[in-house]
Write a protein that binds this DNA or RNA. Structure first.
Lengths: 203, 203
DNA sequence: TTATTTCTGGCCTAATCAGTCCATAAAAGG
DNA sequence: CCTTTTATGGACTGATTAGGCCAGAAATAA
């Protein structure tokens, strides 16, 4: 992006994006209130002072974390769909990705945005707006990918409906995983649900 | 149930179920950590001492609140489906009920179980188990209602798949409402999604 | 060298909060 | 009347927490 001439003074000793990646894990596992500054700074590998210098405060960090998550981990299912060679493959890979995402590192924490972000949204309008925008973007990308893979469905608007169902499926996976729904049962449910969606796209 | 001979001593001055109903609103709006004892006892209309005498502690109360919610407000969509005269009506009423539930009292807080309960589940196994059981029961009741309304779909197992999609739709509504998704857009999305589900049940 | 910036680590504080305790009042049965 | 139970409200505790502050070290450009 901007090469930007070298800054004066001692350079930052850590990568912002890497620190955010570590913070993701804490918020994801503990929730917003459960993630205390000690746990966060320890996971990020920085001191309290560096923390406040770089991220202003906890709620500011949380926003950055949500954004980072949405750009990386959270975007996997959509990306999987976009890069697939066919409609069937797109849905198959999407299904695998949403289950895997909800069980990242074999820990069933669901989705940071859908579970932690949404809960916090009720008391923090900025988080609400952010999560809303992430969901909208996700749904739009899915819709576009489906339009590309199933062009005949576009006239009926079936791709929009299917995109909405895909988002619902993703969110449902997140919730169910977080409360301990068995992963194998989830895999087969998702498969069956996506088969129904595929059928709706191609008749 | 049990008539149970009159207790000795001064009778309780409030209804447990009514107190729970008031507590529902606080947890729903503030989340688990955001709901402090002052706000809870004030809403419930009881003193701190009465609170601890009746509910042991905050997390115990939260469980009772989740259960109460699931039996009352949260059961509305399923009940609407069960009492409908036809498949089409069942799905229509279910759709209306899930959107209304997510906007109870015109406040878009989503679902107490799916949003607040699921977030807390990661750090409280008892809540996780409780929410899981509530979701399972809900899905079973929907499955049974659909089997009743669409008997021809049962052989293919389509009613199970549809029930799973209905649950996903309900959870998705909850999340979207909580983050500020416009209600009108939600109504039309839900309608379209349920039309797809209905079609899958009847072809 | 000097100025500038970020680093660390720890200490402090001001607030919040769950849970306990107590003294007293009120409502019921025996 | 006495016992039992729940009621009230306020005060208190102990723990946790976000955030601020400071002093000294380290790393870079000018």
């Amino acid at each position: 992006m901007t090469p930007h001439k070298r800054e004066r003074g001692r350079p930052r000793g850590f990568e912002i994006s890497h620190a955010l990646d570590q913070a993701i894990g804490v918020f994801w596992a503990c929730g917003y209130d459960g993630a205390d500054l000690d746990a966060l700074t320890k996971a990020m590998g920085i001191s309290r002072s560096s923390f406040y210098a770089a991220f202003t405060d906890k709620s500011e960090l949380f926003q950055r974390v949500i954004e980072r998550y949405a750009e990386t981990l959270g975007a996997r299912p959509v990306a999987a769909m976009e890069t697939a060679p066919s409609l069937h493959e797109a849905l198959r890979r999407f299904g695998k990705a949403i289950v895997d995402l909800a069980h990242t590192d074999d820990v069933p924490l669901g989705c940071l945005v859908a579970c932690v972000g949404a809960e916090k949204a009720a008391t923090d309008p900025k988080i609400g707006a952010l999560v809303l925008q992430i969901i909208a973007t996700t749904q739009e990308r899915i819709e576009a990918a489906l339009a590309c893979h199933a062009p005949t469905a576009v006239a009926r608007g079936a791709h929009s409906v299917a995109a909405s169902l895909c988002v619902a499926l993703m969110q449902s996976c997140a919730i169910k995983a977080r409360v301990g729904f068995p992963i194998q049962k989830m895999r087969s449910e998702v498969r069956a649900n996506l088969a129904t969606i595929e059928e709706a796209l191609s008749d």
